[in-house]
Each structure stands twice: as C-alpha cells, then as structure tokens.
C-alpha cells in the first residue's frame, strides 16, 4: 500500500527462542485510529512494543513516515506510548511530568511553558498542573500520561489498554476524549485492547489477532457483521457456533439434525438470531434473565447450551420449562474453520 504511514512487513518478534509474532504484515494510514484486538497472549502488546522500539525485531522491517526505523532505538523514534499503568513519574508535578520530554531536548523555557500548558489544556488538566500524580484520580492520571506523550507531537501515539482501568462512566468520557483528540490533532493512533466493544466503538479499523497472526482486519461494522472465521465470530459475540456435518450441526456435546446443509464448515448465530417458542427442536430452559429490551435465555439442548435473546414482548418461559427452538438457515452466518 503506497499510502501507508506505518508499515510492518514480514515482522517476526520473539522472546528468546519462542516466536510470539511470526511474519506480521500491517499497513496503517496517516491519521488512522487502529485497534489491535485479541485475547491475552495473542501478540497485540508485543506488536505495539515493537512499533515503540521496546521490543527488538527478530526479522522484518518497521517503516514510519517513509523511514526504516527497525534498528532505531526507542528514544529516537518519536513515538508516544500511554502505558496501561500510566507510568507517571511520582517525584514530579503534573506540569513537570508533561514537560519531561521537552526538558530533555533542552528547549527554551518559554517554549516548554507554552507547549506543556497547551498539552495540559487539551486534556483538561491545566488547573492541576502543580499536583503530584499521587494526588490525582485514575482518570486524571491517565489524561496526564496522554498529555505527556502529546506534548512531544509524536508521529504515532500508542495506547496500551487505554480504557481498561477506568470505571464505566470515565470509560465513556475517555472514549469521547480520544476520538476528539484524534480528530483535532490528526495524530495516528494505535491502541491495544482485549475488549471487542472498546475496539468497535473507537477504531477506524480493527486488527483482530490470534496466536501472533492477524485473523481479520476491517472497519468495526465489517468485523461485527461479517466475521470470517469461527474465532472472529466468537470474539464478535456469535455465541452459538456449531460445526456442520452434512445436514446436521454438531458440538462436543452432541449433534442436531437440521433440514439444510451448508458449504461452510461452521455456522454461527448471535443470541438474537435464535428462534424460541416455535421450531423443530426441543430444549429445556436452564436460565432466563431480564435485560431491558429483551430476555436472555440459556437453553439445554442436544448440542449443549444455546444462548437466545428474545424480545421483551414475547411470551416468557420459566426455568426447567420445555420449549421448542430453531437455529434457522436464514439467520445463520457461514464461517471458515479457525
């Protein structure tokens, strides 16, 4: 891709002899907000650390803004990283934390003052400049960590699990904040997360990783609506995924004869795509939970538990009640083997 701003080609990363990420290829456009998504141990953090220069590449190259930085040390790459723990300097005030990088560069005092002040204002911390990090709340600490990186005007801003340490309300606030920042500064951002809803809500493009390999890349809606593999579907909330053998569905717990067959090795249904109350298969209600606009059922069936969400207006089934259900062909999503 010619318009790639950050380009990872054939990047292999290893801890000693064990390869964490084999042959990764990824292009990121300027100003893009990318999410590296995956379960723990999938190589997303390792990849981020490699972009930052904290993790040496075993082979392959990393290009940023047309320059090969594979062998450039971390302190010369001009990349910002907001750590999950924030990694603020406890002995310095908020202002001095944010000014740290500029002081290292021995900028004139007036420039340090104005740029640091501006960065603190962007994250809404100008009034707390004299505080020590230990006197700030978790959300404020994170915004300080963000300001400390932003003040350096990094080419790329990396964020490690930026929302995971915040409570629900702050999470929404920070999400809005990050999107606003990205719009206003046009900075290229890459963030790492294990939470699919975070990735979908924030990113322009989501990179789903598994065992060091990219499973699927795409805009949030594409990943959400059309996951390609069973793994991706599982991560995107397809809670009912079954293998297809001829005209039956199967799982480790058993098989279910259906009236159709499929070309794909797997079929997946979101809980909302399962039909409950009518159909050709029998099940027993294991649990039911009220969830606002719908009820969430777990059914005991021949092929193990099936999750079904049913509109609040539909008749209610109680626990242990026998009920008919269907995994309809029309709502099935074909999936490749993982």
């Amino acid at each position: 891709m010619s318009d790639a701003f950050v380009s990872l080609s054939d990047l292999t990363l290893a801890y000693g002899e064990s390869i964490a990420v084999p042959n990764l290829n990824l292009d990121i456009r300027q100003g893009e907000l990318i999410a590296l998504l995956g379960p723990s141990g999938c190589g997303k953090t390792t990849t981020m650390r490699a972009i930052a220069g904290l993790m040496p590449a075993k082979s392959g190259t990393i290009t940023i803004d047309g320059r090969d930085v594979t062998r450039v040390p971390a302190n010369k790459r001009g990349i910002g990283l907001v750590f999950q723990s924030y990694a603020l300097f406890p002995h310095l005030s908020a202002f001095e934390n944010a000014a740290f990088g500029l002081r290292l560069q021995r900028r004139p005092e007036a420039e340090i003052r104005s740029r640091t002040q501006a960065a603190l204002e962007i994250v809404g911390l100008a009034h707390l400049a004299a505080r020590k990090p230990s006197e700030m709340s978790g959300g404020q600490q994170q915004r300080l960590a963000l300001a400390r990186s932003l003040v350096m005007e990094p080419k790329v801003l990396l964020l490690d699990e930026p929302l995971s340490n915040l409570d629900a309300r702050l999470r929404l606030e920070m999400r809005t904040e990050l999107q606003r920042l990205q719009r206003e500064t046009g900075i290229t951002m890459v963030f790492v997360t294990h939470d699919q809803s975070e990735a979908l809500a924030l990113a322009d493009r989501v990179v789903l990783m598994r065992d060091g390999v990219i499973e699927q890349i795409g805009p949030p809606d594409a990943l959400y609506n059309t996951p390609v593999t069973a793994f991706a579907a599982d991560f995107m909330g397809f809670e009912n995924i079954f293998a297809v053998e001829g005209t039956s569905l199967s799982s480790e717990q058993g098989a279910l004869a259906v009236s159709y067959s499929a070309d794909a090795p797997y079929l997946g249904w979101r809980p909302g795509a399962v039909r409950l109350g009518s159909g050709s298969h029998e099940a027993r209600v294991r649990s039911v939970a009220f969830a606002g606009g719908h009820r969430e059922y777990v059914l005991d069936t021949q092929i193990g538990p099936v999750r079904a969400d049913v509109d609040i207006a539909a008749p209610v089934f109680s626990v242990d009640e026998a009920v008919m259900f269907d995994l309809p062909q029309e709502t099935a999503h074909p999936l490749k083997a993982s």
Binding site: L54, A74, L81, F89, M152
Partner: peptide
C-alpha cells in the same frame, strides 16, 4: 515499576538518563 523507565526512554532518555532522572 519498570514501565516508568520505558516511559522515560520513549520521551527521549538514554538508559543512563532514565536511571539518573
């Protein structure tokens, strides 16, 4: 925490500067 030193390095410190600063 170790990541404090890494943060210092990403802000431009050498390893020695990260140690002293």
């Amino acid at each position: 925490r170790v990541d404090m030193e890494e943060a210092a390095i990403l802000l431009g410190c050498t390893r020695l500067q990260a140690f002293t600063k």
